[in-house]
Protein backbone atom coordinates (compact mmCIF):
# COMPACT_ATOMS: atom_id res chain seq x y z
CA UNK A 1 0.00 0.00 0.00
CA UNK A 2 2.51 2.57 -1.12
CA UNK A 3 0.08 4.60 -3.17
CA UNK A 4 -2.19 7.06 -1.46
CA UNK A 5 -5.74 5.99 -0.85
CA UNK A 6 -8.50 7.28 -3.04
CA UNK A 7 -11.49 8.67 -1.29
CA UNK A 8 -14.37 10.44 -2.90
CA UNK A 9 -14.63 13.05 -0.20
CA UNK A 10 -11.03 14.17 -0.18
CA UNK A 11 -10.32 13.28 -3.76
CA UNK A 12 -11.08 16.53 -5.49
CA UNK A 13 -13.53 19.32 -5.38
CA UNK A 14 -16.82 18.33 -6.97
CA UNK A 15 -18.47 20.82 -9.27
CA UNK A 16 -22.08 20.62 -10.12
CA UNK A 17 -21.77 22.47 -13.42
CA UNK A 18 -19.10 23.18 -15.97
CA UNK A 19 -18.04 26.79 -16.11
CA UNK A 20 -17.87 28.79 -19.32
CA UNK A 21 -14.07 28.81 -19.26
CA UNK A 22 -14.04 25.05 -18.83
CA UNK A 23 -16.41 24.68 -21.78
CA UNK A 24 -14.09 26.75 -23.94
CA UNK A 25 -11.04 24.83 -22.76
CA UNK A 26 -12.71 21.46 -23.35
CA UNK A 27 -13.84 22.53 -26.82
CA UNK A 28 -10.33 23.65 -27.72
CA UNK A 29 -8.93 20.31 -26.56
CA UNK A 30 -11.49 18.52 -28.70
CA UNK A 31 -10.53 20.74 -31.63
CA UNK A 32 -6.91 19.78 -31.03
CA UNK A 33 -8.03 16.16 -31.24
CA UNK A 34 -9.70 16.92 -34.58
CA UNK A 35 -6.50 18.47 -35.91
CA UNK A 36 -4.46 15.46 -34.78
CA UNK A 37 -6.90 13.21 -36.60
CA UNK A 38 -6.56 15.25 -39.79
CA UNK A 39 -2.79 15.05 -39.47
CA UNK A 40 -2.98 11.27 -39.08
CA UNK A 41 -5.26 10.81 -42.07
CA UNK A 42 -4.39 13.57 -44.52
CA UNK A 43 -6.33 11.79 -47.27
CA UNK A 44 -9.52 13.19 -45.79
CA UNK A 45 -8.39 16.60 -47.05
CA UNK A 46 -8.65 15.31 -50.61
CA UNK A 47 -12.01 16.92 -51.29
CA UNK A 48 -11.12 20.36 -49.95
CA UNK A 49 -7.94 20.31 -51.99
CA UNK A 50 -9.24 19.23 -55.34
CA UNK A 51 -12.77 20.55 -55.39
CA UNK A 52 -11.67 24.23 -55.41
CA UNK A 53 -9.11 23.60 -58.11
CA UNK A 54 -11.31 21.53 -60.40
CA UNK A 55 -14.54 23.50 -59.93
CA UNK A 56 -12.88 26.86 -60.37
CA UNK A 57 -11.24 25.75 -63.58
CA UNK A 58 -14.33 24.04 -64.93
CA UNK A 59 -16.97 26.66 -64.21
CA UNK A 60 -14.80 29.58 -65.25
CA UNK A 61 -13.89 28.20 -68.64
CA UNK A 62 -17.30 26.67 -69.36
CA UNK A 63 -19.52 29.60 -68.37
CA UNK A 64 -17.10 32.52 -68.67
CA UNK A 65 -17.67 33.29 -72.32
CA UNK A 66 -21.42 32.69 -72.27
CA UNK A 67 -22.21 34.74 -69.20
CA UNK A 68 -19.69 37.60 -69.09
CA UNK A 69 -18.31 37.62 -72.62
CA UNK A 70 -14.89 36.43 -71.57
CA UNK A 71 -13.14 34.64 -68.73
CA UNK A 72 -11.56 37.78 -67.30
CA UNK A 73 -14.87 39.55 -66.81
CA UNK A 74 -16.44 36.43 -65.34
CA UNK A 75 -13.80 35.97 -62.65
CA UNK A 76 -15.13 38.67 -60.24
CA UNK A 77 -18.54 36.96 -60.51
CA UNK A 78 -17.53 33.33 -60.32
CA UNK A 79 -14.72 33.39 -57.75
CA UNK A 80 -16.90 34.62 -54.85
CA UNK A 81 -19.67 32.31 -56.05
CA UNK A 82 -17.51 29.24 -56.25
CA UNK A 83 -15.85 30.12 -52.96
CA UNK A 84 -19.17 30.14 -51.14
CA UNK A 85 -20.36 26.99 -52.88
CA UNK A 86 -17.17 25.03 -52.26
CA UNK A 87 -16.64 26.00 -48.66
CA UNK A 88 -20.24 25.47 -47.66
CA UNK A 89 -20.34 22.09 -49.37
CA UNK A 90 -17.25 21.20 -47.37
CA UNK A 91 -19.21 21.72 -44.18
CA UNK A 92 -21.27 18.60 -44.96
CA UNK A 93 -18.21 16.56 -44.10
CA UNK A 94 -18.53 17.77 -40.52
CA UNK A 95 -21.84 15.99 -40.13
CA UNK A 96 -20.67 12.85 -41.88
CA UNK A 97 -17.54 12.57 -39.79
CA UNK A 98 -19.38 13.34 -36.60
CA UNK A 99 -21.70 10.41 -37.28
CA UNK A 100 -18.76 8.10 -37.96
CA UNK A 101 -17.02 9.33 -34.83
CA UNK A 102 -20.06 8.92 -32.62
CA UNK A 103 -20.38 5.29 -33.62
CA UNK A 104 -16.99 4.63 -32.12
CA UNK A 105 -16.38 3.67 -28.50
CA UNK A 106 -14.35 6.75 -27.77
CA UNK A 107 -17.48 8.89 -27.70
CA UNK A 108 -18.70 6.88 -24.75
CA UNK A 109 -15.66 7.97 -22.88
CA UNK A 110 -16.21 11.59 -23.79
CA UNK A 111 -19.73 11.31 -22.46
CA UNK A 112 -18.61 9.75 -19.22
CA UNK A 113 -16.02 12.45 -18.56
CA UNK A 114 -16.88 15.48 -16.45
CA UNK A 115 -16.47 17.82 -19.39
CA UNK A 116 -18.72 20.38 -21.02
CA UNK A 117 -21.43 18.51 -22.94
CA UNK A 118 -20.96 20.72 -25.96
CA UNK A 119 -17.20 20.16 -26.20
CA UNK A 120 -17.07 17.05 -28.43
CA UNK A 121 -19.38 18.78 -30.92
CA UNK A 122 -17.92 22.25 -30.70
CA UNK A 123 -14.42 20.82 -30.96
CA UNK A 124 -15.21 18.83 -34.08
CA UNK A 125 -16.81 21.87 -35.69
CA UNK A 126 -13.93 24.10 -34.72
CA UNK A 127 -11.33 21.69 -36.11
CA UNK A 128 -13.18 21.65 -39.41
CA UNK A 129 -12.58 25.37 -39.90
CA UNK A 130 -9.12 24.26 -41.00
CA UNK A 131 -10.82 22.54 -43.95
CA UNK A 132 -12.73 25.71 -44.83
CA UNK A 133 -9.52 27.70 -44.62
CA UNK A 134 -7.76 25.34 -47.01
CA UNK A 135 -10.68 25.48 -49.46
CA UNK A 136 -10.81 29.28 -49.21
CA UNK A 137 -7.10 29.81 -49.77
CA UNK A 138 -7.06 27.38 -52.70
CA UNK A 139 -10.06 28.97 -54.40
CA UNK A 140 -8.56 32.46 -54.20
CA UNK A 141 -5.18 31.12 -55.32
CA UNK A 142 -6.77 29.50 -58.37
CA UNK A 143 -8.50 32.79 -59.04
CA UNK A 144 -5.25 34.75 -58.94
CA UNK A 145 -3.55 32.24 -61.21
CA UNK A 146 -6.36 32.60 -63.74
CA UNK A 147 -6.04 36.36 -63.65
CA UNK A 148 -8.54 37.50 -61.01
CA UNK A 149 -7.55 40.87 -59.58
CA UNK A 150 -10.02 41.90 -56.89
CA UNK A 151 -10.30 45.69 -56.63
CA UNK A 152 -10.97 45.50 -52.90
CA UNK A 153 -7.36 44.52 -52.21
CA UNK A 154 -5.83 41.76 -50.20
CA UNK A 155 -7.20 42.95 -46.85
CA UNK A 156 -10.81 42.77 -48.01
CA UNK A 157 -10.21 39.46 -49.74
CA UNK A 158 -8.94 38.05 -46.46
CA UNK A 159 -11.94 39.55 -44.68
CA UNK A 160 -14.32 37.93 -47.16
CA UNK A 161 -12.51 34.65 -46.64
CA UNK A 162 -13.11 34.96 -42.90
CA UNK A 163 -16.77 35.73 -43.52
CA UNK A 164 -17.21 32.58 -45.62
CA UNK A 165 -15.39 30.46 -43.05
CA UNK A 166 -17.55 31.87 -40.25
CA UNK A 167 -20.79 31.28 -42.16
CA UNK A 168 -19.77 27.77 -43.12
CA UNK A 169 -19.00 27.04 -39.50
CA UNK A 170 -22.48 28.25 -38.61
CA UNK A 171 -24.05 26.13 -41.36
CA UNK A 172 -22.04 23.11 -40.27
CA UNK A 173 -24.20 23.08 -37.12
CA UNK A 174 -27.12 22.10 -39.35
CA UNK A 175 -25.17 19.18 -40.75
CA UNK A 176 -23.88 18.32 -37.30
CA UNK A 177 -27.53 18.04 -36.29
CA UNK A 178 -28.18 15.64 -39.17
CA UNK A 179 -25.05 13.80 -38.14
CA UNK A 180 -26.33 13.36 -34.63
CA UNK A 181 -29.85 12.24 -35.52
CA UNK A 182 -29.05 10.13 -38.58
CA UNK A 183 -28.43 6.42 -38.41
CA UNK A 184 -25.58 6.16 -40.86
CA UNK A 185 -22.89 8.40 -42.22
CA UNK A 186 -24.00 7.91 -45.81
CA UNK A 187 -27.53 9.05 -45.04
CA UNK A 188 -26.08 12.26 -43.59
CA UNK A 189 -24.24 12.77 -46.86
CA UNK A 190 -27.43 12.11 -48.80
CA UNK A 191 -29.74 14.44 -46.87
CA UNK A 192 -27.16 17.19 -46.79
CA UNK A 193 -26.51 17.09 -50.52
CA UNK A 194 -30.22 17.20 -51.31
CA UNK A 195 -30.54 20.38 -49.27
CA UNK A 196 -27.33 22.08 -50.31
CA UNK A 197 -27.31 21.32 -54.01
CA UNK A 198 -30.43 23.35 -54.84
CA UNK A 199 -29.51 26.04 -52.34
CA UNK A 200 -26.11 26.68 -53.88
CA UNK A 201 -27.27 26.48 -57.48
CA UNK A 202 -30.54 28.39 -57.06
CA UNK A 203 -28.54 31.44 -56.10
CA UNK A 204 -26.62 34.22 -57.78
CA UNK A 205 -23.37 32.28 -57.40
CA UNK A 206 -22.88 31.39 -61.07
CA UNK A 207 -25.23 33.42 -63.23
CA UNK A 208 -26.88 36.87 -63.09
CA UNK A 209 -30.30 36.69 -61.44
CA UNK A 210 -31.83 38.90 -64.20
CA UNK A 211 -31.68 35.99 -66.66
CA UNK A 212 -33.95 33.79 -64.53
CA UNK A 213 -37.77 33.58 -64.64
CA UNK A 214 -39.58 35.81 -62.17
CA UNK A 215 -40.69 33.16 -59.70
CA UNK A 216 -37.17 31.82 -59.50
CA UNK A 217 -35.76 35.31 -59.02
CA UNK A 218 -37.97 35.63 -55.99
CA UNK A 219 -36.46 32.52 -54.46
CA UNK A 220 -32.91 33.34 -55.48
CA UNK A 221 -33.13 36.78 -53.92
CA UNK A 222 -34.43 35.25 -50.70
CA UNK A 223 -31.79 32.57 -50.63
CA UNK A 224 -29.28 33.26 -47.84
CA UNK A 225 -26.54 31.85 -50.06
CA UNK A 226 -27.17 34.72 -52.51
CA UNK A 227 -26.73 37.26 -49.73
CA UNK A 228 -23.47 35.67 -48.70
CA UNK A 229 -22.22 35.59 -52.30
CA UNK A 230 -23.14 39.25 -52.74
CA UNK A 231 -21.44 40.17 -49.47
CA UNK A 232 -18.25 38.45 -50.63
CA UNK A 233 -18.43 40.19 -54.02
CA UNK A 234 -18.89 43.56 -52.31
CA UNK A 235 -15.86 42.96 -50.14
CA UNK A 236 -13.58 41.55 -52.83
CA UNK A 237 -14.54 43.63 -55.82
CA UNK A 238 -15.16 47.04 -54.27
CA UNK A 239 -14.06 46.80 -50.66
CA UNK A 240 -17.46 47.78 -49.31
CA UNK A 241 -19.62 46.46 -46.50
CA UNK A 242 -23.19 46.16 -47.63
CA UNK A 243 -26.56 45.16 -46.24
CA UNK A 244 -25.89 41.63 -47.49
CA UNK A 245 -22.99 41.33 -45.09
CA UNK A 246 -25.26 42.18 -42.18
CA UNK A 247 -27.87 39.70 -43.36
CA UNK A 248 -25.23 36.99 -43.72
CA UNK A 249 -23.92 37.58 -40.22
CA UNK A 250 -27.41 37.66 -38.72
CA UNK A 251 -28.29 34.51 -40.64
CA UNK A 252 -25.19 32.75 -39.34
CA UNK A 253 -26.01 33.78 -35.78
CA UNK A 254 -29.61 32.60 -36.09
CA UNK A 255 -28.51 29.22 -37.45
CA UNK A 256 -26.11 28.73 -34.57
CA UNK A 257 -28.69 29.86 -32.02
CA UNK A 258 -31.21 27.36 -33.33
CA UNK A 259 -29.07 24.40 -34.29
CA UNK A 260 -26.37 24.43 -31.63
CA UNK A 261 -28.80 23.80 -28.72
CA UNK A 262 -30.87 21.43 -30.87
CA UNK A 263 -27.79 19.42 -31.83
CA UNK A 264 -26.38 19.32 -28.32
CA UNK A 265 -29.73 18.19 -26.96
CA UNK A 266 -30.19 15.35 -29.42
CA UNK A 267 -26.56 14.44 -28.96
CA UNK A 268 -27.09 14.15 -25.22
CA UNK A 269 -30.22 12.08 -25.64
CA UNK A 270 -28.56 9.64 -28.01
CA UNK A 271 -26.89 6.47 -27.01
Amino acid sequence: MSSPSIHPTTHHQLNKRTSFTQSVRNSLTMAYRGLLKIRRTPEQLFDVTFQPIIFTLMFTYIFGGAISGNVENYLPVIIPGILVQTVITTSIVTGVQLREDMDKGVFDRFKSLPIARIAPLAGALLADTIRYTIATVLTFTMGYIMGYQPDGGLGYVALSGLLVILCSWAISWIFAFFGVIARTASSVQGISMIILFPLTFLSNAFVPVKTMPGWLQWFVNMNPISHLVTAVRDLCNSGTFGWDLTISLIGAAVIVLIFAPLTVRSYMRQT
Binding site: K16, R33, R40, G105, D108
Partner: peptide
Amino acid sequence: QIVRQLIGVTGQYASVDESLSATENLIIF
Protein backbone atom coordinates in the same frame (compact mmCIF):
# COMPACT_ATOMS: atom_id res chain seq x y z
CA GLN B 1 -21.80 16.02 -13.73
CA ILE B 2 -20.78 15.21 -10.15
CA VAL B 3 -21.10 11.50 -10.77
CA ARG B 4 -18.84 11.81 -13.79
CA GLN B 5 -16.15 13.28 -11.56
CA LEU B 6 -16.27 10.15 -9.41
CA ILE B 7 -16.18 7.43 -12.04
CA GLY B 8 -13.99 5.95 -14.71
CA VAL B 9 -15.56 3.87 -17.46
CA THR B 10 -13.87 1.22 -19.51
CA GLY B 11 -16.24 -0.04 -22.14
CA GLN B 12 -16.73 -3.39 -23.71
CA TYR B 13 -15.30 -2.03 -26.92
CA ALA B 14 -12.17 -0.04 -26.29
CA SER B 15 -13.20 3.56 -25.72
CA VAL B 16 -10.07 5.10 -27.13
CA ASP B 17 -9.35 6.86 -30.37
CA GLU B 18 -8.28 4.38 -33.02
CA SER B 19 -6.65 6.86 -35.34
CA LEU B 20 -4.42 8.42 -32.68
CA SER B 21 -1.41 7.10 -30.82
CA ALA B 22 -1.51 5.92 -27.21
CA THR B 23 0.26 9.04 -25.99
CA GLU B 24 -2.05 11.33 -27.93
CA ASN B 25 -5.08 9.56 -26.52
CA LEU B 26 -3.91 9.92 -22.95
CA ILE B 27 -2.85 13.53 -23.42
CA ILE B 28 -6.25 14.46 -24.81
CA PHE B 29 -8.14 12.75 -21.99
